[in-house]
Amino acid sequence: MVDWKEGETTRNYILRRLLAIIPIFMPNFWVGLLFIWMFSVKFNIFPTSGMDGVRSVILPAITLSLTYISTYARLIRNNMIQNKHENYVLYARARGLKENTIHRHIFVNSLQSSLTALGMSIPKLIAGTVIVENIFAWPGIGRLCVTAIFNRDYPIIQAYVLLMAVLFVICNLLVDIFSAVLDPRLGQEQ
């Protein structure tokens, strides 16, 4: 976890912020292209496109998740900084708990809001698949939708939108249930 380093200079701070933030704002269509060029064209490790076997899943998966990896790292880090100043941490220290145990407590408590954020980023992920499927030429529904738009095939577009809406609702429901399990306070009527 990248915690706040105390006493660092402004320039280092900006640089570190840049490093943390670039993966979030790299347009994923660009990241995908750079990955294909690097790992498929240059080093020929992974296939450029199509879907055959595990090896062709790796690049698209990394492309799609890159943004979220750094988003959540940032989110959890912010939460951990906040949690560090809570009273329960002070109390745990006073009781003489091991630093490792305390860190585990802080970490679990920091996960809560990322779980909610996960529910919110599902639609973004869905939109992301449209682009990634197009770059890696996957025969997925995202690509189907784009082809349908070009062909003015309205029923397919409608079906896609409906499916996504249903998926969105189900995902949110799952996240709600899961956060209720993780945080007992949420399950109770107030």
């Binding site: 973004k124 939109a127 939708c145 738009i149 939108v161």
Partner: peptide, 17 residues
Amino acid sequence: SFPSEVMILAIVGMLGP
């Protein structure tokens, strides 16, 4: 209640590129 990314896709899909 509808994800905005999908909505954008739906509107562009209906109106045309």
